[in-house]
Simulated assay, not measured.
Amino acid sequence: MGLSYEDWQVGSRLEVGTHVFTADEIIEFAQRFDPQPFHIDEAAAQASPFGGLIASGWHTCSAMMGMLVRNVLPGSTSMGSPGIEEIRWVRPVRAGDTLRMFNSVLAKRVSASRPDRGIITTLWEGLNQADELVITVRSNVLFGLRSPQTAGQA
């Protein structure tokens, strides 16, 4: 069985995975979902304040979500998220960048209205190959309790 509410510890930090962004992938994603010139046209991107092609922030978030779903959530008691509290795109993600994702647990509590599940507050951090922070995401995730009867001890 995968991770349940009880397995998450406040203060823990987990390396989730890596993703390499290619120019083709950046352009393909942006053409469908965020067709701004600096995401889809290399010449326009060169003339932009970014000085070159960059990934959409939504692309970066999607890549991180994919890492989380593939590498952490299989078999878990995850029930999805009630929402994102904050996203910060700190620096551009460029073609050729390798993003490493980390997930830290900031807080956790058992739901008052549904004691069979808990809410985990997490901070996602994405660092590029130079260990520069490029993105942060603060979110909440619902996880089922393995043992709801011991909720007061979790």
Rank of each mutant, 00 (worst) to 15 (best):
H39E: 06
S147D: 14
S113T: 13
I54R: 03
L106I: 13
N128K: 11
V10W: 02
Q31V: 03
I135C: 13
S4W: 14
A30N: 01
A30V: 01
V69I: 15
G126M: 12
A130T: 09
W8N: 05
G2M: 07
G152Y: 12
M1Q: 10
G80W: 02
R100K: 15
G51N: 12
Q9F: 06
I135A: 12
Y5H: 11
I26P: 00
D34Y: 02
D97T: 12
M64Y: 00
Q31M: 02
I119G: 04
G83V: 00
L14Q: 08
H59A: 07
V10I: 14
F50C: 02
L99V: 15
G96M: 12
F29I: 00
M64C: 10
G57E: 08
N140I: 00
T60D: 01
N103I: 10
P35R: 04
A63F: 04
G17Y: 03
L123Q: 06
I27S: 01
D97W: 12
A95W: 06
E125M: 05
T77C: 10
S62F: 05
Q36R: 13
C61A: 14
S113R: 12
A130Y: 10
V72D: 09
T22R: 05
A45M: 07
S81F: 10
L14S: 04
V110R: 11
S56H: 04
V10P: 00
E25S: 14
E125D: 07
E132P: 10
R100F: 10
G75V: 03
L133S: 08
H59T: 10
L142V: 15
Q46A: 14
P35V: 08
G126I: 12
C61S: 11
D116W: 09
F29G: 01
S78T: 06
H39R: 01
G11Q: 10
A23Y: 06
E6Y: 04
R88V: 10
V141Q: 10
G80P: 01
L68Q: 11
F38N: 03
V141A: 14
D131I: 08
G2I: 01
A107R: 15
R94I: 13
G51S: 13
E86I: 08
G152A: 15
A151E: 08
E6D: 05
S81L: 11
R114G: 03
E15W: 01
R13K: 15
A45G: 07
A154G: 09
L106Q: 10
F143G: 11
R94A: 11
W89A: 02
A23W: 04
A44F: 03
D131M: 09
T122E: 02
A43N: 03
R109Y: 07
L14E: 06
